[in-house]
Design a protein around this nucleic acid. Structure first.
Lengths: 333, 333
DNA sequence: TCGGGCTCCGAGAGCGCTCTCATCCGGTGC
DNA sequence: GCACCGGATGAGAGCGCTCTCGGAGCCCGA
């Protein structure tokens, strides 16, 4: 799988255009300070020979790579069950493309992969890293920071070693949760329950905090732990119905969880939204629009988050951003 | 976003170990032909200095990159609505990791992106390419082949210019469709309908062919065009019910389509599977297991396909592979 | 006419690595 | 004891590019 065809070099282009390698290089890199006739000759030579610069040689001297790593820690299969990352990737890709940067994807599973990723990042292949750190105790953030690369995190990283001043992009999980709860209160509900996400992730913790802050009834029996999956939503919903059969609203940590909850509610004969109002989180379209009834949910701008992460990284910004969320009203609440 | 910290070079390692650069290089690359005491000294120097080889310099001379491009043509948003690519990526990533290769992700949207991708591939950044060509008229396959890179396609590419002898990995769409239809026949159904996928994709065409081959009733009114989305499934299902209200089974081109169809069937008061049996395709777990009733479907080994693509590419194999599908029986048929 | 400042171009030195080749060494066979 | 051989090591030549720097040419004012 070695490259065979020997590509034309700058030298060849220069020769054909009758100029020096230096001039050819200048033209290839924008052509400033080269007079028009020469520019034209070089351009033509490039065209004729089908010259494409050798990136390795270029990187060797410029120490730039025009590439950033996207690190996705993915211990569970779950990650791919929702299109969350895919959407973020898309945003990232768009932004990087606009900056002529490439996207190197590093998926990790398990601890040994971490050292591999650490080595790669330290190896100077990329100009920066975008890291999705899913878990509170994840060693990845620390590892990456130690590699000394500019880094932007997707979602607030947990407070492990040295990530305190990390740059990250997150959505306003806490605020969004508050909006969801207040919306339910506005509908006259008073016994609002919450199904959490996987609590080893900051997003789940923040949403829980937001819920607690806004919830009218602090009864801990109104909170059940989920894991961001439909199955988890089902289990938690059953638990809640058993503990507090009088509940009249549920705020689920994400749309998939809400979908599970809806199924259980229907199964138990509770009408949505009449008996129990349900609000999700994410506004994952293929999910939220397809549930029965269609899901009222807190939208976070997922693709935009990806785009922003990339922009912060290549722009060399130094501050985190928390994007606002909005409530999308459908039928379920 | 330029890299600042100046990393130690091989030269430095050699100096510290008291050997020549050549010997240091030998040790770093496996240590063959170097006597034990020296190997040890070099290893230690590497350790102490935290030396990591500069990949750009290495590529410059070896002309290898230990990286492959994954090209995903994604004109529609749809692609990310199902976890199909995510799963394939996962398989690819695993295999590449095992071969110490990196994964460079190129997402394209629209025609201008194609030239960008073509340039990149021709630019000699990667050792090969894995290409997902979604559409029959896609210029991408031809473009890639012209770049002269070893390439493996995900899914049978359409017969455009020069892709006739392309290497690809696909699942047995035609055969799988046949199995689905025969399963329905085995249940005593005689008026089996089909909702196709987006017919500009070979997978949809092949499934349709398989259906036609096995279907008991060749009435064209039993075939409605979908687009692999739940919405498309709904539309097509309504169409079918109107045209042939007597239908007693539906084979949907994928699980998402089936999910849409199920919704319409329920809405129209048809019981599944009693009145109408439904079979999907993919065995996309979060979808197939969560439908009501749970979906009987044709499973294709998605992650395995990704893995295999990567293996064919790095292994330099020359032949395409079509993986078998299996029927997964649940409730809907 | 001449010097000074400009702009434009080319020569050449590296970036950090690999790999060929010459060198050197100890051991062997005669 | 000597030529020989083979394995271990080092010297050095690039890989293809960028970028500094000096020189060449030009236009201007004096």
């Amino acid at each position: 799988m070695t490259e065979t065809a020997s590509r034309p070099t700058l030298e060849a282009v220069a020769a054909r255009a009758g100029v020096s390698r230096a001039t050819a290089s200048r033209v290839v890199n924008g052509g400033d300070g080269v007079r028009e006739p020469l520019v034209e000759r070089v351009r033509q030579a490039v065209e004729e020979l089908g010259y494409v610069p050798n990136q390795a040689a270029r990187s060797l001297v410029t120490r730039r790579h025009d590439a950033v790593a996207v690190v996705i820690a993915e211990p569970e299969t779950r990650v791919f069950a929702d299109p969350f990352f895919a959407l973020q990737l898309r945003g990232i890709s768009k932004e990087l493309t606009a900056h002529d940067s490439q996207l190197v994807l590093l998926l990790t599973e398990g601890r040994d992969d971490h050292t591999r990723v650490g080595r790669y990042l330290a190896g100077g292949h990329v100009d920066g890293a975008l890291v999705f750190s899913l878990h509170l105790d994840d060693p990845l953030p620390g590892l990456v920071q130690r590699a000394g690369l500019p880094t932007v995190f997707g979602g607030r990283p947990g407070w492990s070693d040295g990530t305190r001043d990390a740059v990250y992009v997150d959505s306003d999980n806490r605020g969004g949760a508050g909006v969801a709860v207040r919306h339910l209160l506005g509908l006259g509900r008073t016994r609002v329950a919450h199904i959490t996400g996987a609590l080893d992730q900051t997003s789940a913790v923040d949403r829980l905090d937001g819920f607690r802050e806004a919830a009218p009834d602090p009864d801990p029996r109104l909170i059940a732990e989920g894991d961001f999956t439909p199955g988890g939503g089902e289990r938690a919903m059953r638990e809640l119905l058993e503990r507090r059969p009088d509940l009249d609203a549920v705020f689920a940590a994400n749309d998939l969880t809400a979908a599970g909850a809806l199924r259980v509610l229907r199964e138990c004969g509770r009408r949505v939204p009449e008996d129990v109002a349900v609000v999700g989180f994410d506004d994952m379209l293929p999910v939220a629009e397809q549930t029965d009834p269609a899901l009222t949910t807190v939208r976070q701008p997922i693709e935009e988050m990806g785009r922003l992460m990339a922009r912060l990284l290549v722009g060399g910004e130094a501050s985190s951003v928390v994007l606002p969320t909005t409530l999308v009203r459908r039928v379920s609440a």
